[in-house]
């Protein structure tokens, strides 16, 4: 069954898009991530313009992180003050991201920038995750606790001013790294069409030492707000959000996420991180080959948009 997308201006198979939503939803439910880094490339692969894909996926992630955030809210696993502080940076990051996105589109190097940022970000994060989880798996094999004790030493940014106490997470940190992390996530989300969960969670754990109890719920709140505002901003500045496409993706996504979450509970944390790391690395390498391998056609055409 084909349906014509009003903004992307092309017909797509409803079941293909729903299926992609379910598949990515499954993975996102399993690992507790938004799945934007998988969804955006998939949409580009089926022929949707990269700009429309990035903008519409932000709506999809807003929906999936909303259902996740509600679930964590019921369990009281969200650190609201920390989420608000991250958001302060996040909104600013999203605004700069959408601004840069618009600029890059006008000089027509958006594809290259999206490609390069995917390669650098995904291969680095993927490789780090694999290294870390392999170490953890090895430790648990040797009968040691899988997570090493938190080192007592302080990194340089722990000495920064504007210290704040977050009671729910039991941490006492400067507001500056919190804002910076929020800004980075909001920025990347707007430019690359990713929620940033797979980077945000490690950042919160390693840099801010947020405990596991609150880390996922808090990161979901940040993703929810940045992606919802990215939707509004992309719609207002670039008019690229395809509501029909987004609705199909999120319908598939929320269904897939339920099954993914159940599957995820059967695996231990280290193995989950190892699998996720390999997935992230694979997508990164896929983008790398695309940049390096000789294209089938060196020429490409594009309509020149009238920028307002």
């Amino acid at each position: 069954m084909e349906i014509y997308l009003p903004i992307a201006d092309l017909p797509v198979n409803v079941f293909l898009i729903l299926g992609m939503g379910i598949a990515v939803g499954f993975i996102s439910g399993m690992f507790g991530i938004g799945g934007g880094f998988l969804m955006t490339p998939l949409l580009i692969f089926v022929g949707i313009a990269p700009a429309v894909a990035v903008a519409s996926v932000s709506t999809h992630i807003a929906a999936s992180s909303c259902s996740g955030a509600i679930a964590y809210w019921r369990r009281n696993a969200i650190d609201v003050p920390l989420a608000l502080m991250l958001l302060a940076g996040g909104i600013l990051g999203t605004m700069s991201g959408v601004w840069l996105f618009t600029k890059l589109r006008s000089v027509d190097q958006l594809d290259l920038v999206i490609g390069l940022s995917y390669v650098t970000l995904l291969t680095t994060v993927g490789a780090l995750m694999i290294l870390e989880s392999v170490r953890a798996v090895r430790r648990s094999r040797q009968g040691q606790p899988p997570v090493p004790r938190r080192p007592g030493s302080h990194a340089w940014f722990h000495g920064l001013p504007f210290k704040l106490r977050f009671k729910r997470s039991k941490i006492y940190v400067s507001a500056i790294p919190v804002w910076a992390i929020g800004f980075i996530i909001g920025f990347l989300g707007a430019v690359m069409g990713i929620g940033g969960g797979f980077i945000l969670v490690p950042m919160l754990i390693y840099f801010l030492r947020v405990p596991t109890v609150t880390v996922i719920g808090t990161s979901l709140v940040l993703q929810l707000v940045t992606m919802a505002s990215a939707t509004v901003l992309h719609a207002t500045t670039n008019q690229l959000v395809d509501a029909v496409l987004a609705l199909m993706l999120m319908t598939g996504g929320v269904i897939g996420a339920q099954f993914g979450a159940r599957a995820g509970q059967k695996l231990s944390g280290e193995w989950l991180r190892l699998l996720l790391g390999m997935l992230v690395l694979a997508v990164g390498l896929r983008f790398a080959t695309q940049l390096v391998v000789t294209p089938s056609d060196p020429y490409s055409i594009r309509v020149v948009e009238v920028l307002r």
């Binding site: 679930a71 939707t231 509004v232």
Partner: peptide
């Protein structure tokens, strides 16, 4: 409207 639709879908799912 699109953003609200996303929130509604998420809420419905939960």
């Amino acid at each position: 409207i699109t953003a609200l639709m996303a929130l509604l879908t998420g809420w419905l799912a939960s």
